[in-house]
């Protein structure tokens, strides 16, 4: 399985293909819809984002609380479609990778091709397993949002699968087509 580091180099982004299984290490940021709304509002007002988004990876995730002595609680992906209204705007300003689960709208997939960004899926509902890949977590902004705050995570060998690459590949369509059976 290919090991890659976030922020992800553009040469690697260009090579990634829908269906590739990847172990991701490095720095990623978490944000759900409430944090996305604030980031896009900031951009609309010409304000700076809470972190330099150029080349970065956003993980759509809101963890359960960390137990004492733990880095984080369960930490699996949330449904990405809720971020579709905001994702193209963030790709415009440099977002290079998104991690979540579930379907994206055609305009989001078009934006991925245009801005050279990839969409990867983590295993939905594997929150306990994924928590083991998270080595540190700190709230960067929007602390008032609780679980939905913007966090910076350091991850090690987080298992993800490329869903949409920059060439138009789409694992959700390809996988389904391959295993579809016609019933009388």
């Amino acid at each position: 399985m290919q090991k890659i580091t976030s922020p992800i180099d553009m040469e690697i982004i260009e090579d990634l293909k829908a269906g590739d299984q990847v172990l991701l290490s490095g720095i990623i940021y978490t944000a759900r819809d409430a944090a996305h709304k604030r980031m896009v509002e900031a951009l609309d007002k010409d304000e700076k984002l809470p972190f330099d988004i150029e080349g970065q990876t956003i993980y759509y995730m809101g963890p359960s609380p960390a137990k004492p002595g733990e880095v984080i609680g369960a930490a699996g992906p949330t449904t990405s479609g809720r971020m579709d209204a905001y994702a193209p705007r963030l790709m415009e300003v440099g977002l290079r990778a998104m991690i979540g689960k579930g379907l994206r709208l055609p305009e989001v997939k078009d934006a991925m091709k245009k801005h050279k960004a990839v969409y990867m899926a983590a295993i939905g509902g594997a929150g306990a397993l994924i928590s083991k890949c998270i080595k540190s977590a700190e709230v960067v902004a929007y602390d008032d949002l609780g679980a939905e705050a913007l966090r910076k995570l350091e991850v090690e060998d987080l298992p993800v699968t490329v869903i949409n690459d920059i060439h138009g590949g789409d694992l959700y369509e390809e996988g389904k087509a391959k295993y579809k059976i016609t019933v009388d």
Partner: peptide, 12 residues
Amino acid sequence: ALGTGPQGFGGN
């Protein structure tokens, strides 16, 4: 028979 599979990656 839809082919969606676990996590939508394709399968039975």
